[in-house]
């Protein structure tokens, strides 16, 4: 069964000179607009020379406050992709650090490692740029010193 054809809108009437004038009008309008835009200040940023302002909540490269860390391993357990590896030996209250690495090839910057930290010593900073030609460079060492502290923290 043939469907009933919907009623058609009456075709727009073309007026030769009117069409020419409206074309000139609309083109002139557009050209004026682009000419105005030409003199505006660019909104882009000259990136490597000019760095963007990063919000404090940004989830960037991790920062570890090694003085506070108690080697509880909660961040490594929380990590869904198991990219945090840590190794240390306890000497009573002192912790002798062997390793604390984060593999940024796996890390998806979900911030789940930051929430369980009891000492709030493991946070994500605002640094975002990490470029290398070698895969091994992305296994990032977060320790600032290894082994036992050489001197008491002030």
């Amino acid at each position: 069964m043939a469907l009933p054809t919907p009623p058609r809108e009456p075709a727009r009437r073309h007026h030769y000179l009117g069409d020419i004038l409206s074309t000139i009008h609309s083109t002139a309008k557009g050209m004026a607009l682009t000419m105005r835009y030409l003199w505006r200040k660019p909104v882009t940023m000259d990136y490597p020379k000019e760095k963007p302002v990063i919000d404090q909540r940004y989830r960037g490269i991790h920062v570890l406050d090694q003085q506070l860390c108690i080697y509880c391993d909660l961040c490594a357990k929380a990590c869904p992709v198991d990219c945090i590896e840590m190794d240390a030996v306890r000497h009573g209250k002192e912790i002798e650090w062997k390793a604390f690495t984060l593999d940024y090839q796996k890390c998806m910057f979900c911030e789940l490692c930051v929430y369980p930290c009891p000492k709030d010593c493991f946070i994500q900073g605002t640094e975002y740029s990490m470029v290398s030609e070698d895969r091994n460079d992305f296994v990032h060492d977060l320790l600032t010193w290894k082994g036992l502290r050489e001197e008491e923290p002030s």
């Binding site: 835009y37 030409l38 505006r40 200040k41 660019p42 909104v43 882009t44 000259d46």
Partner: peptide, 12 residues
Amino acid sequence: VAGFIQHRVGPM
């Protein structure tokens, strides 16, 4: 010209 019209800067 293309850059400035689109609020960019073009080659820099």
